[in-house]
Amino acid sequence: MDITIKNWVGVIEVDDFSPLSRGDAAFATELRNAVVDLSDDDFVKVIVLRARGDFAPFQPAPDPGASVIFTEWSRNFAGAAALYQSMTFSKKVILTEVAGECAGAGSLLVLSSDLTVAASDARFASPFADHPEANFVLAALTIRLNRAKAWLIRDYGIDAAQADAFGLVNRVVDRDDLSTTALDMAASAALMPLDGVVMTKMLQQAVLDASGVGREFDMASFYSAGLLVSHGETNE
């Protein structure tokens, strides 16, 4: 995981974000720490999440162990201090830069970020069938309720053009132009005064919580338990 800071923009670069999809707690913690550290950095206004290849190639998601759902699993993936809430309620603007396959947890990162620039070959899989920590309220707020429902139930991939039309991403560009466009957008946000960015993000927390985003994260452990039950029934 490479972390650079330049011109008020912190960039977190990894090979891809698929370790999150396979439940890699160490990776989730490392990424969470990077996000929180950059959020705390007085010389960072915007945080960019970038993959060197496809954003999040598909990885099978293992069920969390029943005995740790309400403890370690929640702490690592769903809790108030875990990665996705650290991103959603970050003090700084978070931008995801998505190319190619965006499966599983990749779509959670997109939903948890403020801005997204996508390559024209990006494809966003529904995270809901396999990831109990996926926040449906964020999806409904982002692409509207019925689109989020259909995404969840049909469990299909949204291509870049659809994502643009739905409001899941802010811009779609050729893959060759992705990083440049993402940094341009980050630079635009970085023109804002630091305190203005932080105050806006603080106010945004209240708006998101009033809409149920925090409460939906709180439900994740129960969703996880329900997923275990459904898998058990299915496998019988």
Partner: peptide, 27 residues
Amino acid sequence: EEIARNPLQKLLYLKARIKAAEGVMDT
């Protein structure tokens, strides 16, 4: 029919998720 090709328990889980989320959204 495409949706119904999924196992019943998977669909029940997904519907339970929607209902719970709609509860927290007040919809």
